[in-house]
């Protein structure tokens, strides 16, 4: 089971791989679309990779609610249980 910091670090790694952004830019308050410039296809890729990494299920209909990196971290943390 990963804690909040571990989830953020793992997610930042995935986002960095997918987008070429520096992992340090992937902070909790950042918006995926407005701050990190991630399009919907990249977002779906990140979700698929995060599901595998954290062994969780993130339903498609949930993805639209994940506005910020923090939203995703919180959802993944909850989904682990």
């Amino acid at each position: 089971m990963a804690d909040k910091n571990e989830i953020l670090a793992g997610l930042a790694e995935i986002v960095a791989e997918e987008t070429g952004l520096d992992a340090n830019e992937v902070a909790l308050d950042k918006s995926f679309t407005d701050d990190l410039d991630i399009d919907s296809l990249s977002m779906m890729t990140i979700v698929t990779l995060a599901e595998e990494k954290f062994d969780v299920r993130i339903p498609d209909e949930e993805v639209k609610n994940l506005t910020t990196v923090g939203d995703a971290v919180t959802f993944i943390e909850g989904a682990q249980n």
Partner: peptide, 10 residues
């Protein structure tokens, strides 16, 4: 190996 859910969107 992992099922349909792991197929990448790209």
């Amino acid at each position: 190996e992992k099922g349909a859910n792991r197929v990448l969107p790209m």
